[in-house]
């Protein structure tokens, strides 16, 4: 864990300044790599999918493509999952998947120099540290930088069909 975080920090350092899209979940500010963001849209016309965890709000039609919508507020127990005309969905494109995440509001795009990013704390954020690449500071406010790709690919979110499950099946078939 320790080394991996170290690597992540090093990697960031190598890239000098990266740009992040910042958004809020409840009272916390988060940032994700702007390059992973496809677009931002409002929250509407979500079709529910039965027998899925609560944080999977359902799917939407994004110009003919079916895109799942995840409410991170429910998943990580931050803020209140309310939906109104200002509710924002960030459409991200990672791991060859297009996924929408519901957030309380999108703030800005900021460039953070690598040296200003500190390693993530062991505890403290609502989000599991596994998905945090580091902490940034913006106008004296803490910005939690999320490894959105790892989060989306995680077994916890159950968006990507579990790799573990597949290999197990494979083993049985042998």
């Amino acid at each position: 864990m320790q080394t991996a975080q170290g690597n992540a920090v090093q990697q960031l350092a190598a890239e000098a300044a990266s740009e992040y899209l910042t958004f809020t979940l409840g009272s916390e500010s988060y940032g994700i790599d702007i390059l992973k963001v496809q677009e931002i849209r409002g929250y509407d016309c979500v079709t529910r999918i039965a027998n899925t965890p609560l944080f999977i709000k359902g799917v939407i039609n994004l110009r003919g493509v079916i895109v799942p919508i995840i409410d991170l507020r429910i998943k990580f127990n931050v803020g209140e999952a309310t939906y109104h005309e200002f509710t924002v969905v960030i459409i991200i494109n990672v791991l060859n998947k297009v996924v929408g995440i519901v957030v309380d509001g999108v703030s800005d795009v900021v460039a953070l120099p690598a040296q200003s990013i500190k390693p993530p704390p062991e505890l403290g954020a609502s989000l599991d540290t596994r998905y945090i690449t580091g902490l940034g500071t913006l106008n004296d406010e803490m910005l939690i930088l999320v490894d959105i790709e790892k989060l989306i690919g995680s077994d916890e979110l159950q968006i990507v069909e579990s790799a573990v499950e597949d290999t197990q099946k494979g083993a049985v078939n042998q």
Binding site: V59, G64, V65, I66, V67, P68, K97, V98, V99, Q158, I159, V160, E161
Partner: peptide, 8 residues
Amino acid sequence: KSIETNYR
């Protein structure tokens, strides 16, 4: 349309 393209 495939749901699996972006979801499971």
